[in-house]
Design a protein around this nucleic acid. Structure first.
Lengths: 338, 338
DNA sequence: GCTGGCACTCACCCGCGTTGAGTGCCAGGC
DNA sequence: GCCTGGCACTCAACGCGGGTGAGTGCCAGC
């Protein structure tokens, strides 16, 4: 096991490297941190840390930089989450409070996260799977053409066109609308299928085909929209990434454009806790020199979606985690209020 | 005025520079293009072109590169629009045909444009200003709380919460809904204000407050949503921008995140024609080394929104213009069909 | 187990001469 | 009058070589 001091040395290395972006050597370390020992001793500790794979040298006779494994240890054991200061918290709240609708909430959240962490921010729209139905509306656009509008408690609206197998009267439509809403309003999406299962039976034979079509469109919408939308921002922060640009930045930009990849990234978060994926821990190859800090957020006690940031493995973990957690908390509040 | 041959020299310079990204000299020019004259003559022509400000040298004793003014002349006089090949056109159509809803259409268009031009693509959602109302729906969520849903002929849906000044009965609601729709359905957004102006008068005194609130919310939505949404993609292509990365790419990424800036960029397009803004012609400072090629598209003969690409001033103008025009045409078709 | 000392390594910087693409100018030819 | 070949000049880019300094590993001594 590593002695207390060696852990302290690792912490110091991570701290300095994150600040300077340059390999840190034994002498500089002892000068900036009062470790109480000489550079020679630190050198021995470094050799041990390197042996265990927590740090590495870019080339002989250079300082050390933390490895992914080193960052992992740092995040797990050595660093806490740095809470936001009171003024910062007020600023967050003020900024988010001005939002007028769901798009605006998500948009502001992305900008806020990007600004606070100076990294790339990713925010998932509140999920349909976990939310409840606020209202289902059916509109008749033409004799055999309906529009289905679905409104969720998170303020999201989805619409679908429906071509009916047979003309559908206004009376039947009003009836269907009323029955649908009385069954599903306020219920969770996951529960909807069985709640509407026997609905066609209540209608005349000639209308059953249309009712069934409407229901299957509704259920389809639930499934399809489980692939969530998301918003990203702060990509300009990628330019502060490192020195060897094109090679580093390109795969990251590419990965960021693939929704699927991003959703997977966020998706690995546990329900409540915060997740930090460091370097190669990310499945996607292009993100092997980035870390992802993500967390769930929601209007109630349960998470309805996730948000997070993507940055270089060399990032300020405590600060980033603090910002991500704080933003998630306030977004949750905003959603609960509206 | 510039002689025919000098224009030919400029065309050759633009062509070669776009291909190689390196300043082009007199000797190389005569070798690659059969101009029928010697390098010395070309040098004289180059001196003249430089005198007029169409080309410049990065430093003494280097080749020439086109200036913004040079590109402008090239685009206006020397280059046509390169039409897509038949297989390309088929590919475009196939790719766009698979779209299931509006978001999907826009998303596919962005990806397609980015891929075809290998540049950053920007697509504006079909505008509300020019579209017509398909349907307005009012839902009662609570005794004094309504939801307004607006559906456009381009398939876009906007919703707003409304807190009523007084409780509003179901009968009055149905009445308002019917009257609203009979007046505005199928009409252009711009015409809506005067069409609903006298609507409160048809209601009982105690309901007029609510009706007025609903109407003002509706009109507000029209105005607010004139700031359109847009989607961008292909930012990874920025990495092929040039050599001196961070400085070039950063302001571009920043500009791309500001919707307002982008909308202005696209906004300057004339209704039907294609617009090319080169380098400093773009008002935004960060985009002074980029060119924007944009064009309007729409479901009918009229443009309802714009799309375009942002790339380095050193871009293949004929090819880019061809791709942009072709994509706009097919998107218009798709929208018209749905 | 910590420390100071010492030899060694190696990226980085700076100065220097070479190379070669490119230019401007000029005198001569069509 | 315009084009051409020739010539001297410029200057970024490249490669080379030595000096510098931060950093390392090892070892003997406290």
């Amino acid at each position: 096991m590593l002695s207390e001091r060696r852990l302290e040395v690792l912490r110091a290395i991570v701290h300095d490297y994150v600040g300077t972006e340059e390999p840190v050597g034994s002498k500089a370390l002892t000068e900036r941190h009062s470790l109480g020992v000489s550079p020679a001793t630190v050198r021995n500790d470094m050799a041990a840390l390197e042996e265990e794979g927590f740090i590495a040298q870019p080339h002989t006779s250079a300082g050390r930089i933390p490895t992914d494994k080193g960052y992992r240890l740092f995040v797990d054991k050595l660093a806490g989450v740095k809470p936001m200061t009171a003024p910062e918290r007020r600023a967050i709240q003020n900024f988010l409070d001005g939002a007028v609708d769901l798009d605006d909430v998500v948009g502001r959240t992305v900008r806020l996260l990007a600004q606070l962490t100076r990294q790339v921010a990713v925010v998932q729209y509140p999920s349909l799977t976990r939310s409840t139905v606020r209202h289902v509306e059916l509109l008749s656009l033409a004799p055999a053409r309906l529009m289905l509008v679905l409104i969720t408690d998170t303020g999201r609206v989805e619409q679908r066109m429906i071509d009916c197998p047979a003309p559908f009267g206004e009376t039947a439509l009003a009836d269907l609308r009323a029955r649908l809403n009385s069954r599903v309003a306020g219920r969770r999406f996951a529960d909807v299928p069985q709640l509407v299962q026997d609905l066609p039976e209540a209608f005349e034979t000639e209308d059953r085909g249309t009712v069934a079509t409407v229901l299957s469109t509704l259920l389809e919408t639930l499934v399809e929209e489980t692939e969530e939308r998301l918003m990203i921002g702060g990509t300009a922060n990628l330019t502060r990434f490192g020195h060897d640009f094109p090679l580093t930045i390109r795969p990251v930009l590419e990965a960021l454009e693939e929704q699927v990849v991003l959703l997977k990234l966020l998706g690995e978060v546990q329900d409540s806790g915060m997740a930090v994926r460091i370097g190669h821990e990310n499945a996607h190859e292009g993100l092997s020199s980035t870390s992802v800090v993500s967390v769930g957020y929601g209007s109630g006690s349960e998470a309805v979606a996730k948000l997070g940031v993507v940055g270089p493995t060399r990032m300020d973990y405590p600060g980033t985690m603090g910002a991500v957690r704080a933003v998630a908390r306030y977004v949750g509040q905003i959603l609960a209020e509206s």
